[in-house]
Design a protein around this nucleic acid. Structure first.
Lengths: 338, 338
DNA sequence: TTGTATGCGTTATCAT
DNA sequence: ATGATAACGCATACAA
């Protein structure tokens, strides 16, 4: 019969000290790998730890050190985007990679309701994280201003208008859109339209204005349709509408690869050949681009780097270094759809 | 000129008590909404809080209450799946929904290296979360046994063989695969093959055995190809290989919708008609299924419910209630691809 | 190199 | 209903 021991009581530093015949201070020092511990003490503590099964209590440690060594990544997306947007996974992995190397734990918080929004704000305020990267906040997003008020080191991925003036990392959506639109126009297309999406976000709005600028006088507002999300379904509907409005349309800029894929399906079902009859270009260079036939010409967005850079911006602030907004380069990947 | 105040020092409960002319105890009581506080004290405290800008320190609170009111969701996936697998987003949202209602914060931790694996284990051990749901752990995944050893309330989504005997929620992959294979066979197909994936995971292995069982004596091992991931690319390659081995093949069970989509592309490019020449079925009922032409017949997997149920299993354990493994129902969605 | 003592900001117990 | 006081488990400045 085992001795009547109190369950549910984790070993503390005191237990280790007692078992090792040393003081709490020494135990703490070896646990934190500090200098000034004799080899004897070190090994004594180490196996005392093993014997009593000690693991240090993070809450107590955070309380005294006033840091958590954790960074939040806040995702505020409509449902469907969480499944469709290929960038978000890359951003997450990129951020995780640099934080992991710096020995910070990335914790992802998702906001899917107002209740979530408040709880996440409390989480940040409570000191459970030392910083935050906010991905895809829309203008007037309450979490954006909450982050600013709380004053926790932070960085935005993307730069929605109306967002507090905090560090961010973004791509030049407008310039990239202009470039690829010009390239499309350069293939001799006469009637170029756009399936725009997410106009309430910087990415969507900027891609549209880039498109408009590139076309200049040739821009025709009736050849632009607009949908809330960057989805395949938006591509389907958008292309149908565009075909209805102008059957002779011969060039399409889709706001994302998923949208382009949907549009291409409609185009081909209508008997049109791509790129012979209609040229089409997308945006993202996601796995969608390789899935269409012909493969998509598109803009390569460095999603992984967006995540990495955002993480670096936060780390810089934590270390008291200056941290300034960054705009990352994009490149055009020209394949066979235009 | 503002008074020389020390920056970076958050107000504590003491500051509030002083400002309100009350004791810490009373302040704590109103902060936590407890009974036995006079209305006068309540309002006095409330505006003292507003005046000094008090927010409670979670670390200190967690230390004394011995709970964090947070639940971890651990994602251990190869890179590509994080982008391709539509289920994971639904699982996450489902879990978040039930935890949010119970006023728990869901924190997602991703494991992308051994270093991550260790850090996440430390995070769990440190008491920063009260429970954990583990999604898609593979057999021999170190995090699985770590969770068991740590003894934190937990639940697995899926049930890989070799996994510690802990609560889980899964679907009957084998039964579902058997059912849809029988259905496919029922359309009169003579040579039925399978593009299998992720055989090192319960889902992949069970879908294969279900397929084999359904065919019984008609099972032909040479008509099965196997790939590590549930991807579109696996579908492309797998179908090419199958066509090479047996050009007369007329039925395909793809291990997921993404795989099926890739296979269908190859089939159609080879001049075969679906479903006239070849019938094909998938698994998941993800957005892929609606994207192919014709649309895919497939198995609907209740990803959202998987997340919800896993969260409920964890909450039950926290509350000291019994928590038993669950197997959720799937349904066949019959469209036009077979 | 090691030990001691103090404090981190809360909650909880026990008086009052 | 409110106030004192003692933990919670750890890090750290200082003494030894």
């Amino acid at each position: 019969m085992p001795p009547p021991r109190i369950r549910n009581r984790r070993a503390t530093i005191n237990d280790v000290a007692a078992a090792a015949g040393l003081s709490r201070g020494t135990v703490s020092r070896v646990v934190n790998g500090e200098r000034y511990v004799s080899d004897g003490a070190k090994t004594a503590v180490e196996d005392a730890i093993a014997r009593v099964g000690y693991v240090r209590n993070s809450a107590a440690r955070n309380l005294v050190t006033r840091e958590s060594r954790a960074i939040a990544l806040i995702i505020h997306e409509p449902h469907s985007l969480l499944f469709e947007d290929p960038n978000i996974g890359s951003i997450l992995l990129g951020a995780n990679a640099v934080l992991s190397k710096a020995d910070y734990q990335l914790v992802s918080l998702i906001i899917d309701s107002d209740r979530d929004s408040r709880r996440v704000a409390d989480y940040l305020r409570g000191g459970l994280v030392d910083g935050a990267v906010i991905v895809s906040a829309r203008a007037s997003d309450p979490i954006a201003s909450a982050v600013r008020d709380i004053g926790v080191p932070s960085a935005f991925v993307g730069h929605p208008p109306g967002t507090p003036d905090l560090p961010y990392v973004a791509i030049d959506n407008k310039g990239a859109a202009r470039t690829i639109t010009e390239r499309l126009a350069g293939t001799g297309r006469q009637r170029i339209g756009m399936i725009a999406s997410a106009m309430d976000r910087d990415s969507g709005y900027d891609r549209f204005t880039g498109f408009r600028d590139a076309l200049g006088a040739r821009f025709d507002a009736s050849l632009v349709v607009e949908y809330p999300l960057y989805t395949y379904a938006a591509g389907i509907e958008g292309m149908q509408e565009l075909l209805r409005r102008c059957p002779e349309i011969d060039g399409i800029f889709a706001a994302s690869d998923a949208v382009a894929a949907g549009a291409m399906t409609v185009l081909q079902e209508s008997g049109r050949r791509v790129p012979d009859d209609v040229g089409i270009v997308g945006f993202d260079d996601s796995s969608w681009a390789l899935r269409t036939r012909p493969q998509l010409s598109t803009v390569k967005q460095p999603a992984d780097s967006l995540g990495r850079t955002a993480a670096e911006l936060v780390l810089a602030q934590i270390r008291g270094l200056p941290s300034v907004a960054q705009v990352l380069d994009t490149t055009v990947v020209w394949r066979d759809s235009a």
